[in-house]
Simulated assay, not measured.
Amino acid sequence: MNTPLKILHTESSLGWGGQELRILTESLGMMKRGLDLRLLTPREATIFQEAQKRGLPVEAVPIARKNLPGLITLRERIQTLQPDVIITHSSTDSWLTALATRFLANRPALIRLRHISAPVPVNPANRWLYGTASLQVVTTGEGIRERLIRINHIPADQVHSIPTGIDLARFSPGDRQAARVTLGLPAEIPIIGIVATLRSWKGHHDLIDAFARLNHPRALLVIVGDGPREEFLKQRIAALGLSPERVRMTGRQENVPLWLRALDLFVLPSLANEGVPQALIQAMATALPIVSTPIGGIPEMIESGVSGVLVTPGDVPALSAAMGSVLENPSGGRALGMAALEVARARCSTETMLDRMEGVIQEALRRRDRRR
Results as ranks from 00 to 15, higher is better:
8 L>V: 06
16 W>I: 06
21 L>E: 09
27 S>D: 09
32 K>V: 10
34 G>A: 03
36 D>H: 07
37 L>C: 11
50 E>C: 01
50 E>Y: 04
51 A>G: 05
58 V>L: 00
58 V>E: 13
65 R>Q: 14
74 L>T: 07
75 R>C: 09
88 T>P: 13
91 S>M: 09
91 S>I: 01
92 T>H: 11
103 F>L: 10
109 A>Q: 02
112 R>Q: 15
116 I>H: 14
127 R>P: 01
128 W>R: 08
131 G>T: 05
136 Q>M: 12
151 I>F: 03
155 P>I: 11
158 Q>F: 00
159 V>D: 13
164 T>A: 12
173 P>A: 10
174 G>T: 09
182 T>R: 14
191 I>V: 14
197 T>C: 08
201 W>I: 01
204 H>Q: 15
204 H>V: 03
211 F>V: 06
218 R>E: 15
220 L>W: 04
240 L>I: 03
240 L>Y: 05
241 G>N: 12
244 P>Y: 07
246 R>P: 03
248 R>L: 15
258 L>F: 01
263 L>I: 04
267 V>F: 02
281 I>G: 04
282 Q>I: 06
286 T>V: 09
289 P>T: 03
299 P>R: 02
299 P>K: 00
303 E>M: 00
304 S>V: 03
307 S>L: 02
313 P>K: 05
333 G>S: 07
337 G>C: 05
343 V>F: 10
347 R>T: 00
352 T>C: 03
360 V>M: 14
362 Q>G: 00
371 R>N: 12
